[in-house]
Design a protein around this nucleic acid. Sequence first.
DNA 1: TGTACATCAGTGAACGCGCGTTCACTGATGTAC
DNA 2: TGTACATCAGTGAACGCGCGTTCACTGATGTAC
Lengths: 204, 204
Amino acid sequence: MSTLKSAKPYHHGDLQAALVTAGLALLEEAGEAGLSLRAAARRAGVSAMAPYRHFPDKAALLAAIAARGFDALADRLEAADAGADGHAAMAAQGAAYVAFAMERPALFRLMFGPRGPGCPPEFEAASNRAYAALATRAASLAGAMPAEDVALACWSLVHGLAGLIIDGRVPLTGEAAQATAERIAQSFSERLSSPRPTVKRSQP
Amino acid sequence: MSTLKSAKPYHHGDLQAALVTAGLALLEEAGEAGLSLRAAARRAGVSAMAPYRHFPDKAALLAAIAARGFDALADRLEAADAGADGHAAMAAQGAAYVAFAMERPALFRLMFGPRGPGCPPEFEAASNRAYAALATRAASLAGAMPAEDVALACWSLVHGLAGLIIDGRVPLTGEAAQATAERIAQSFSERLSSPRPTVKRSQP
DNA sequence: TGTACATCAGTGAACGCGCGTTCACTGATGTAC
DNA sequence: TGTACATCAGTGAACGCGCGTTCACTGATGTAC
């Protein structure tokens, strides 16, 4: 801090954050395969060993990156929710969720990929924040179904749709994918909140 | 074929299928990280180079394994569907989908992971077969929503739920997860097939 | 204000690893005559 | 029925790769006196 912007300071300043940022960039440019400890260090302009001052191992860096991903997702969901009311807000959140996954598919996969043990608390916190945005809106719409079922169903719907789209298992891209996500989320929201229909149970 | 069960025949007989089987086993025992060309060859009792007689590269073996996964999933879905009618059949398919993912999470991730170019036709065929099982049932239930939206919504719901469960992002395991999947799929099916409710659009 | 020293945050060389893939080869099989 | 030969399906050694991680180190920083 004594020498501001010195050409090549020995001490980085905030290497921890820089490594996370570098990792996010690598993920976007080269996908999960391109994200290695060494590559992140290289990109942060630091030796291969430097990250070990800030993360015990590679998994810890990945968890920190994923946590930042969840924070970004939560931001998107909250912003979408704030811009509308009722079912339209649910539709907007669904579209935002899918948009996030489409924009940053590798990050999205990392966020939801298998987590080893020893997951840092920041990860849980960020993940819960994203979930809370969806669940709060879903609870406000809950009709006959239990609120937690509605929340889980909403999350599953948008999460599954996002996954199918980014993995190319559904022939939807760009704006068509967005529009479909919004349309389906809205229909879903309207119908889930209605009381259970009184049709007969089985209709072969 | 001339010498049946000779101790160590030079020619394997059906190495292609054996490699796929070996890959499936590795996936179940050691996850995606444990699945390498060399490991599959080792497990099939063959040199590291032998697989190249049957697959141009590693991606081709992975695609063949994923295709077999889709066939297994389609079997499960068809069996579940055949055992029930109407909404109950949809619920059974949802539960079967989630059960499959929980039993073979690494295979499930491989099946839906990113596919490189040059995906073999068998993969598309198997994948379509699994989708058709869900979509056919969904179409039979479609109410006011377009049939393809209903099919996509059903698929997204169970796919998302399966993903959230196997990645541990939802505190559900074992039978509780199964029961939740079935309950949600049934509610979902009943409500999606009903005409659009006549509540006012916004309810803040 | 100056200095000694503990601590922090980086370096750079090296290790072993398993991987996908290449190369040139050899043993087994089937077919034409 | 026997033989020559093309083709098929495997072997085994080797390559280069980037990786995560270890080790012993050095430069920078802050604090007690």
